[in-house]
Structure formats: structure tokens, C-alpha cells
């Protein structure tokens, strides 16, 4: 599985679809999903997997090249897998889509300050620093990460890794298999320090 292309080039946004699949957390489920894409000839731009808010369910976020197959077919074929519980296409939703990149750059006493300035502009964090290198961690959409990579290239990128896109619909609507949070529980969560919807800063926008 490839993550987002690292050379900064990517298809026009309208051909990309962000599909979220809620899947049973069972051995082989990722193989089932990836094998389906291979044999049906659907191109994956990015695939990420992690736990969801429900124990026993994982959440797969796929970025699919809509030119390679009608996204409706992708969704239906995914849903046919027994271990896939729910499939949603977030593309037409107002969504937050993010990925993380770690970038190891050649850095010395001469140019380190310049790199730190660039990092500040992109709100990237310095997560490691050594005599001849630094590692930047950046969170954002693909364009932002591509932009930072481009700025770092002249200094010499020694190593790069990206997580691929994860996404979530804004507002109360969810992509989970459960009903929306009951009001009582929502209040409980709020009392424990979670910020109420609408107050969240969209930090990287």
C-alpha cells in the first residue's frame, strides 16, 4: 500500500474520493480490503488503518482514484466483504482530512535557523535534533505537507515518511456504526474537558 505520492504531484482533487470503512478488527481484514482493490483494478492513493471509538472495530481511511473506478462500485464491493461493517464516501461532506509527515533534513549550524523558520511558518514541530540533522513533524492536508517538503528539499531530505490521509466529517454527523452520542453522555464528556462543537480551532486551516 502506498501512501500519498511523495513527489508532490497528485491527481486533480475532483477525481479523489475519501472513503471510510469501519471493519471488524480481525486477522486478515486488511488483506481482504487491499486484495479487493488489486483485483478490481481500483487505484489506492492512500490507505490508513487504526482503532475506532468502538472496541473491536477498526477504521480504514482510503483515498481512491475516482478515475480508475466509479466510487460507487468501490463502496459496494467493499461492503460485500463480510468483515466490512460500514462504508461511507466523505468526498461530498464537509470534512477534516489530515495526515502526518516526519521529515529528516540535513541541518547544520549554518542553516538550522532557516529550517526552524520554515517549520514555524508551517506550524511543524521539531521532534529530534542532532548535529547534522533535524526531524520535523507536520500535521495537515496533503497540500500543506507537499508545500513543506518542497521548502525543505534544497537542504537535503534524508528520510521522509507520511501516514496517509485520515478524515472525519465536521459537525455532529458521524461515520460510526453507532447512533450519535446521547445528550447525557455528550454533557458528561463536556464536563470532563472536551470542548463543545463549534469551539474547536481549525488549527491548520
Amino acid at each position: 500500500m502506498s501512501t500519498t505520492t511523495t513527489n508532490g504531484s497528485k491527481p486533480a482533487p475532483h477525481t479523489q474520493h475519501t472513503v471510510v470503512a469501519i471493519v471488524e478488527d480481525k486477522p486478515g481484514v486488511l488483506m481482504r480490503v487491499s486484495s479487493l482493490f488489486r483485483r478490481r483494478g481500483f487505484n489506492i492513493e492512500s490507505l490508513t488503518v487504526g482503532h475506532s471509538e468502538v472496541e473491536g472495530l477498526s477504521r480504514i481511511t482510503l483515498v481512491v482514484d475516482g478515475e480508475s473506478a466509479p466510487v460507487e462500485q468501490v463502496e459496494k464491493q467493499l461492503y460485500k466483504l463480510i468483515d466490512v461493517v460500514k462504508v461511507s464516501d466523505l468526498s461530498n461532506e464537509d470534512m477534516v482530512a489530515r495526515e502526518i509527515a516526519l521529515i529528516k533534513i540535513r541541518a547544520n549550524n549554518v542553516n538550522r535557523h532557516e529550517l526552524l523558520d520554515i517549520a514555524t511558518v508551517f506550524r511543524a514541530d521539531v521532534v529530534d535534533i542532532a548535529t547534522n540533522s533535524i526531524i520535523l513533524q507536520v500535521v495537515g492536508d496533503e497540500d500543506k505537507i507537499d508545500g513543506l517538503i518542497k521548502m525543505c528539499e534544497p537542504y537535503g531530505i534524508r528520510e521522509l515518511t507520511r501516514t496517509g490521509r485520515i478524515a472525519m466529517v465536521r459537525g455532529t454527523k458521524t461515520t460510526t456504526v453507532h447512533e450519535a452520542e446521547p445528550e447525557k453522555i455528550a454533557r458528561l464528556h463536556a464536563s470532563q474537558g472536551r470542548r463543545v462543537e463549534g469551539e474547536l480551532p481549525f488549527a491548520s486551516d
Partner: peptide, 14 residues
């Protein structure tokens, strides 16, 4: 065999 038959079964189990 579960890997081999994964694309040609409705579902399989080990």
C-alpha cells in the same frame, strides 16, 4: 489456503 481462497470465497476462516 485462507490466503489463496480469499478472492474466490464469500468468506473464509482459519
Amino acid at each position: 489456503i485462507t490466503g489463496i481462497t480469499q478472492p474466490i470465497t464469500k468468506h473464509n476462516y482459519l
